[in-house]
Design a binder for these strands. Structure first.
Length: 491
RNA sequence: CGGGGUGUAGCGAAGCCCGGUAUCGCGCUUGGUUUGGGACCAAGAGAUCGUCAGUUCGAAUCUGGCCACCCCGACCA
């Protein structure tokens, strides 16, 4: 009862905030804009990291670590890039504290002013390219395919748990190549890695696309993204991959001698996903009873709730349950046996549902008598009773089924929430009344993009990659357009 | 950063207008009865009322500053 959360229809934002807290994923810290990721939430992030890291390694990348601090002068070298986030940088100006005059606290020691201020990294392009300059002389040094797992700081004005916090965790890949083609291929390869991860592990269908000029990373030549649809009809950018061209190579003077002996600037990419994926995971699947986790990312796959009155009964149930647990673990299934005698079964059911555990088994005296077990799935809340000696195999299959069903449900939802429109009246009506993605013709100008944003709060989420060209006219200006792009209000 | 709102026990709230030293539900502790969908009874513990200052004999209550969070807007690689 105490753990109940508001419904999505009542107040979606409140539902999200309460869910994150009540499911024990994260909470606000006493540091402005920063959150504490709690063990249950962090273990989901760890699962994401494991899966992504394996995919990065498979595609030839290695991990490294670069400093948290970036000298201010590094940022100054790439004017376009810095313009994007100069307004939200944390700056280190001093390196020492001293006891205050009244002896009651500490103050910044004015004597300890840094000669050059350090910026807490909002992203690491500059500090990494500064290193690459030292590492690259010849085409033989290329490509460099490095990823780093790190925390970064962007001093956001308005924060939300996981979706936008002042400090967050992410991975950033930074690669250097001898040719533009190789760098573009890398950019698209990583976009595909992200899409595959979202779909296979998060059960989250995404649209791969290219950002408009207005929406792209300022330091990039092209920005690609994966866009997902949340249950409230707003879009969420789940990952980005940038083709940097030679921008950073030029800013940091990174040249290499080609096979032909000519000096050329290096071609770069960068790509990242962050703890924001947690927000996407929550908002795409969860319901009014709590979290719904895809089995591939659930810290606990199966919880077994014993129904018992006495210690003797519990002992008998435990014996049976242990056989099931062993069997499940052989199949790589993570099982929790919830034998707390301080909570009633009903309470435990509700609690594990809140935490999104995909499968629940209930085992009581009646089951012991009949040789059965009750199996409940979180995604549909269906329950069935089955013979206990078949349960392990069935649960393994059920977990796969849940993973598939969650994807399908999200994909169907997105399908319903994608609306092609052919006039601006229709556009406005859909954005206001229905939400979701609006597929519309756009003349390709940033003036039109800005005007539409002004009037509808919808932005161009992406120019989808996998759609055929289709001649038409811009919904706003009536000018010719070669293809439809996706608009939506976004997180 | 602009507009609005909120901050009282671990959580959710009442009290504030009209100043007199804090109330309720959940949770927690102990004992007992319970246990197949969020148990019940009884007895307890727990709050210098976000924070700092001011007004006052006296401040959760009035005034001002600050901090945090929420909603709307601006911004968001």
């Amino acid at each position: 009862m105490a753990k109940e959360i508001p419904s999505r229809s009542e107040d979606y934002s409140l539902w999200y905030n309460e869910l994150v807290k009540k499911a024990d994923l994260a909470e606000h810290s006493d540091v402005r804009g920063c959150m504490v990721i709690k063990p249950y939430g962090y273990s989901i992030w760890e699962k994401m990291q494991q899966a992504l890291d394996a995919m990065f390694k498979e595609t030839g990348h290695v991990n490294a670590y670069f400093p948290l601090f970036v000298p201010k002068s590094f940022l100054a070298r790439e004017a376009d890039h810095v313009e994007g986030f100069a307004k939200e940088c944390a700056i280190v100006t001093h390196y020492r504290l001293k006891t205050s005059e009244d002896g009651k606290g500490v103050v910044v020691d004015p004597e300890a002013k840094l000669e050059e201020e350090l910026i807490v990294r909002p992203t690491s392009e500059t500090i990494i390219w500064n290193s690459y300059k030292k590492w690259i002389q010849s085409y033989r040094d290329l490509p460099i395919l490095i990823n780093q797992w790190a925390n970064i700081v962007r001093w956001e004005m308005r924060t939300r748990l996981f979706l936008r916090t002042a400090e967050f965790l992410w991975q950033e890949g930074h690669t250097a190549h001898a040719t533009a083609k190789e760098a573009v291929d890398e950019t698209l390869q990583m976009l595909n890695v992200y899409a595959e991860f979202a779909e296979k592990f998060m059960a989250l269908p995404v649209i791969k696309g290219k950002k408009s000029e207005g929406e792209k990373f300022p330091g990039a030549v092209d920005t690609y993204c994966i866009e997902a649809m949340m249950q409230d009809g707003k879009a969420l950018q789940a990952g980005t991959s940038h083709f940097l061209g030679q921008n950073f190579a030029k800013a940091f003077d990174v040249q290499f001698a080609s096979k032909e002996g000519k000096l050329e600037y290096v071609w770069g990419t960068s790509w990242g996903v962050s703890t924001r994926l947690m927000g996407a995971l929550i908002m795409a699947h969860s319901d009014d009873d709590g979290l719904v986790l895809p089995p591939k990312l659930a810290p606990i796959h199966v919880v077994i709730v014993p129904i018992f009155r006495t210690e003797t009964e519990l002992a008998a149930i435990r014996e049976k349950a242990n056989l099931v647990i062993q069997d499940l673990r052989k199949h790589g299934v993570t099982v929790k046996f919830d034998d707390r005698d301080t909570q009633k079964p009903g309470f435990k059911f509700a609690e594990w549902e809140l935490k999104g555990v995909p499968v629940r088994l209930a085992l009581g005296p009646r089951d012991l008598e009949n040789g059965t077990v009750e199996v409940a799935r979180r995604d549909t809340k269906e329950k069935q009773v089955m013979p206990i000696d078949q349960v392990a195999v069935n649960v393994v299959l059920l977990l796969e089924e849940i993973q598939k069903n969650m994807y399908k449900r999200a994909a169907d939802f997105r399908q319903r929430m994608t609306t092609p429109v052919n006039s601006f009246d229709e556009f406005k009506k859909v954005i206001n009344d229905k939400g979701g993605f609006v597929s519309a013709h756009w003349d390709g100008t940033k003036e039109t993009e800005a005007a539409i944003k002004e009037q509808t709060k919808a932005t161009i989420r992406c120019i989808p990659l996998d759609v055929p060209d289709e001649a038409g006219t811009c919904v706003f200006s009536g000018k010719p357009s070669a293809r439809r792009v996706l608009f939506a209000q976004a997180y």
